[in-house]
Amino acid sequence: MNNDNSVRLTYTEKLTPKNSTFVMVDYLTGFDPGLRTIEKATFVNNATALAKLTEIFKMPTIVLGEDTGFRGNFYPLVSEHLENGIRVERHTPSAWDEPKFKEEIEKIGRQKIIVGGISLDICTQLLTLDLLRNGYQVYVVVDASGSDQKLVEHAAMLRMTQAGATMVSWGTLASELMGDWETPEGEAIGKLYQEHSAWGGFFQSYQN
């Protein structure tokens, strides 16, 4: 019973700019053909909003991927809003198998890892499972991710949830990390919602 309570408290503890880290997985144009479970414009909008959160809260961020061959090029959001991110190239589906990634995540020293990635069911899922296996608490940003089939995407979310990960949206993260509108960050988040959220009317132009 105490163990169950401990697990519940771990995942109900609020995310803050001081206790969590971002990992951005493979935001590269070469993977666009497999992105079929979310409209491309919506995906890019959400991923950009997520990247802006790392700037607003000045949080440590690891950026995975490399500009080569079939992978294409990084989305502009990487250079525009993740320029201070720690770049890690790898040759493995899960970044956990890349020594530099483990070195950087251990150096940051935070247990709560917020993961967003273009392939929810492959690289994002495999990294998430490895992080969980090694004692980290993982929050997967589902609306800044995608897959090639709804069924595959659903299976990936089920597996990660069953393994202990939490599914979140960028909007949830924005408000949770902010905590108080009466702060400089609160003002920035208000602007972020106006620019990227349906709550601010942004989606109206291509949802109606």
Rank of each mutant, 00 (worst) to 15 (best):
M1Y: 14
N2I: 14
N2E: 13
S6V: 15
V7T: 06
R8A: 14
T10C: 05
K14S: 07
P17H: 10
K18N: 08
S20P: 02
T21C: 13
F22Q: 00
V23Q: 03
M24T: 10
M24G: 01
G30V: 11
G34N: 05
F43G: 05
V44S: 07
V44W: 05
N46R: 11
N46G: 09
N46T: 09
T48P: 00
T48V: 08
L50T: 15
L50M: 10
A51P: 03
K52S: 04
L53E: 00
I56W: 08
I56N: 09
F57L: 10
M59G: 05
T61S: 08
G65E: 00
E66P: 00
E66G: 03
G69P: 02
F70E: 07
R71V: 04
R71P: 00
G72V: 13
G72M: 12
L77D: 01
E80N: 11
H81F: 13
E83Q: 11
G85Y: 02
G85S: 10
R87F: 08
V88R: 00
V88M: 03
V88W: 00
E89L: 02
P93D: 10
A95T: 04
W96L: 01
E98K: 02
E98D: 09
F101I: 07
E103R: 14
E103F: 10
E106M: 14
K107W: 06
K107E: 09
R110V: 09
I114A: 00
I114M: 02
V115P: 00
V115C: 04
G117A: 12
I118S: 08
D121I: 05
L126D: 04
L126H: 08
L127R: 06
L129C: 09
D130T: 13
G135F: 07
Q137T: 07
V138G: 01
V140A: 02
S145H: 03
S145M: 03
S145K: 00
D148K: 07
D148Q: 05
D148T: 09
K150M: 14
K150F: 15
K150S: 13
L151Q: 12
L151I: 15
L151N: 11
V152C: 08
V152S: 11
A155D: 10
M160K: 05
A165Q: 11
T166M: 12
V168I: 13
V168G: 05
V168Q: 04
G171V: 06
T172R: 05
T172Q: 09
T172G: 09
S175G: 05
W181H: 12
E182Y: 14
T183H: 10
E185M: 12
G186C: 08
E187Y: 14
G190A: 15
K191M: 14
K191Y: 15
Y193M: 12
E195C: 09
H196V: 11
H196G: 06
A198F: 13
W199D: 07
W199C: 04
W199T: 11
W199K: 13
Y206R: 08
N208G: 14
N208C: 13
